[in-house]
């Protein structure tokens, strides 16, 4: 049996590869990454000359890795919604989406193809940035396996960003509206998930947090923070050995999840589940047989 590409992935990659946007995109990505690298290096050099340090720069070069990784994650988080939020709405604007829906591709295959092509395009950028990342590894003395974990994290985060973008694209008729809506979703997931925790902490002076922190399992910011803590120090955000919390401060579930690497893996699973749910919602929305068709099509 021959393996088949999702036709949408193939088409999207083909069209993107011929466009100048890809070349400019890689150029911009590399430029930002280089700037981040040089800036981090300058800061490290400055720090190593400080009277409070030994003057040995090599001990600080390990920090190049998180700086470059955070720079890459920020770029990915910003550009993936732009790529995916215009994917379905762009097809609608070009009036090619109807033809796509009359073919044998299921709405979920269409959505999956769009997200997969966005993730693959991001991987182009990440791979193009590898030589710069490699400098951080050589100078910082980190294991190459970290790079593998980092790429997995990037894939997970671009999957989440891509699924948010595709859902917004399915919800909106215009690409620009879809991009704006994606960032509203971002605000909810990245920022507003802190709200229950902050409110609970304010109301109880941080003494009885209950299970309010569980919502942070879907927060990519906390996931990434935990990932780096585990990677760089082997410790968790929630404590060096076991939980930082006492049994009374947090609920039973939170207390047990904040032990070891449990939070990290569970958070990854939650983000992956959320991404799949967003994609299913997008597929449901674009399926003409399911979605509400109360509005007349504009000719």
């Amino acid at each position: 049996m021959r393996m088949r590409w999702n036709p949408i992935v193939k088409k999207d990659l083909q069209v993107t590869a011929r466009s100048m946007r890809l070349s400019w995109g890689v150029f911009a990505y590399e430029t930002v990454l280089t700037m981040a690298f040089l800036l981090a290096l300058a800061v490290i050099q400055q720090e190593s000359r400080s009277i409070y340090t030994t003057g040995n720069i090599y001990g600080y070069l390990i920090y190049l890795f998180p700086v470059l990784s955070i720079a890459q994650v920020c770029i990915v988080a910003l550009i993936v919604p732009v790529i995916t939020a215009s994917s379905i709405s762009g097809e609608k604007e070009r009036q090619t989406f109807d033809i796509m829906l009359t073919t044998c591709m299921s709405p979920f295959s269409i959505v999956l193809g769009k997200v997969a092509s966005a993730v693959l395009r991001i991987l182009f950028f990440v791979m193009a940035g590898m030589p710069i990342m490699a400098l951080a590894f050589v100078a910082g003395g980190l294991s190459w396996s970290y790079l593998f974990y980092f790429i997995l994290t990037i894939i997970l985060l671009s999957l989440l960003s891509g699924s948010i973008g595709i859902l917004c694209s399915a919800l909106c008729r215009r690409s620009i509206t879809a991009v704006v809506l994606s960032y509203v979703f971002y605000f909810f997931i990245y920022i507003l998930t802190f709200l229950p925790v902050i409110l609970r902490a304010l109301l109880t002076d941080g003494e009885r947090m209950g299970e309010s922190m569980l919502i942070l399992l879907i927060n990519p910011f906390i996931f990434f923070e935990e990932f780096f803590m585990q990677l760089m120090t082997g410790e968790s955000l929630f404590g060096a050995s076991g939980s930082n919390f006492t049994r009374g401060e947090v609920g039973f579930i939170t207390y047990n999840l904040s032990q070891g690497k449990v939070w990290l893996f569970l958070s990854a699973a939650c983000i992956l589940t959320l991404s799949i749910l967003f994609m299913l919602a997008a597929a449901w929305k674009v399926n003409p047989m399911h979605s509400s068709s109360g509005k007349k099509r504009k000719k």
Binding site: W5, Q14, V15, S19, R94, M100, C104, M105
Partner: peptide
């Protein structure tokens, strides 16, 4: 509606694959 940067042959291939 058309896709930029897609040839006639590739256009047919895309929909055939679908």
């Amino acid at each position: 509606g058309v896709y930029d940067n897609l040839k006639v042959r590739e256009y047919m291939d895309l929909y055939g694959s679908m």
